[in-house]
Simulated scan of single mutants.
Amino acid sequence: MSSPKLPRPLTSLQLKRLKAYIYAEPILDLQEFVATWDLNRQLIAQVCRVDLRTVNTWFSQGRTHQQPQTYHLWYLTTAHIILGQYEYLPEFLQALLCPFDDDY
C-alpha cells in the first residue's frame, strides 16, 4: 500500500504570486463586458453561475438594482480571456479551462 501524498509546500515565489492574485482586481466590469461581447442575460447568468433574476438586478434601476460581487466579475474576466485570447493560451491551459465535449 502506498503512502498518501503530502501537500506540497509553497515556495516564496509561489506565495508571492498567490498573494498578488488574492489582492488583484478583475480587469473589467459588467458594462465593459456587455459592451465587448454580445451575450444575452441568460448566458451571463450561466457564466457567473447565478440565476437570471440575479443578472436582471444588475441591469435594473432603482431600489432593485444590485452590483455584481467581485467573484462574479472574476467569472466575467475569465470568460473575457477565453473569448478573446483562447488561441494564445498554452494547450494545457486551454484543456483545463475549456475541456471540450462533443455534446456542446
Rank of each mutant, 00 (worst) to 15 (best):
R63V: 05
H65V: 02
L15S: 07
A24L: 08
I82Q: 11
H72Y: 13
H65D: 06
Q61C: 01
H80M: 10
L15I: 03
L15A: 15
F92L: 03
L43S: 05
E91R: 06
T54V: 12
L28S: 08
Q94P: 03
V55H: 09
I27D: 14
D38G: 05
G84C: 12
R49I: 01
Y71K: 06
P26Q: 10
D51A: 00
I44E: 03
F92M: 13
Q94I: 02
H72I: 12
Q46C: 01
L52T: 04
D51C: 01
Y75S: 13
G62D: 11
Q85D: 02
Y88F: 13
I27A: 09
F59D: 01
W58Q: 04
Y88V: 04
I22R: 13
E91K: 09
Q85R: 13
H80G: 04
G84P: 10
L13E: 10
A95C: 04
Y21N: 01
G62A: 13
Q69I: 00
T70I: 07
A95S: 06
E32N: 00
N40Q: 02
T78H: 12
K19R: 13
I81M: 14
Q85T: 07
T78C: 14
T64S: 15
V50L: 03
P26C: 10
Q61R: 09
F92G: 01
C48A: 00
E87H: 12
S12Q: 09
W74T: 04
C48D: 09
Q94Y: 00
V50M: 02
F92R: 14
L52D: 10
N56I: 03
V50K: 07
V34H: 01
I82V: 15
C48W: 01
A79D: 04
L13R: 15
R49S: 05
A20V: 11
L30E: 08
A45Q: 04
Y23N: 14
T77Q: 14
L93K: 06
F92E: 15
T77G: 12
